[in-house]
Amino acid sequence: MRYWRGLAVTILVVGVTGLYVSRPQPLPASTFDGITGDATAGEITFAAAGCASCHTAPDSDDPSILSGGKAFATDFGTFFAPNISTSGTHGIGAWSDLEIASAIMRGVSPDNAHYYPAFPYAAYQKADPRDIADLIAYLRTLPAAETPSKDHDVGFPFNIRTSLGGWKLLFARSDWVMPEPQNDDIIRGRYLVEALGHCGECHTARNALGGLDRSAWLGGAANPNGDGRIPNITPGGLDWSAGDIAEYLKSGFTPDFDTAGAEMAEVVRNTSQLTDADRAAIAAYLKAVPAVPDP
């Protein structure tokens, strides 16, 4: 009897401790102290972070209408990008800046639930709060779309959001993948690639639980929708010059004058809005990451 009682207490303590350490943790209230968002600067952050690529309607070319609805098929189910327009009913219009920032940088909803990592908060957590304040200021200038968000189609056990706290502990690492960039260009490129641009979300292979394999960072991955393969963009798979990479991110033309296709065309629509210096920084970073051999 004493054994079973001890076991029950142990399980209870471990369970409660686990729930506590993996609880949703919104940003501290002081996050935006002394920071005022600039909507003009936020438009560039909006492009760099690729918000429109996921949150516009599936049949829309208008990056300002963030009504959501695009489907993202994964091994864990199908996720639908939510409405993040300024609608007070269906979007984020009624949320505070801190609530929006907690969603973006911590993957925590205003009602204190974990978001699924189909939303790349694991990358955005590395963003500068000033950039996020600018982004939020820009989002607030966009029109409201009165389209209800669709429920994700995720089966048991992945539909238990509490478990996402454990996923975050294991895989949502806040440290940089490239710990010691060699110059300012690469530091800027690291920020654009690892944080805002969240390039690793598609270009890095995942383990069975959906965590990114940082040992093969940007080394290419299976396309979750089954079409082809997301390419290796390390020097082990991409032999373009830094100038070629920057040009591709600007015009969509490859060095042999093919054009970007599939999801990458959306990305180029975003990177084409960046400055030449930022595109060069991304290129410098991609030339500096460790080469991952092609399979």
């Binding site: 079409d227 082809g228 393969r229 997301i230 015009s251 969509g252 054009t259 970007a260 296709g261 065309a265």
Partner: peptide, 20 residues
């Protein structure tokens, strides 16, 4: 030349899969 590239890209975005 930009609109030509855009038309190429639009088609590749909508109707071409990534390489295997």
């Amino acid at each position: 030349i930009g609109p030509v590239g855009k038309a190429c890209g639009d088609c590749h975005e909508a109707f071409r899969t990534p390489r295997n």
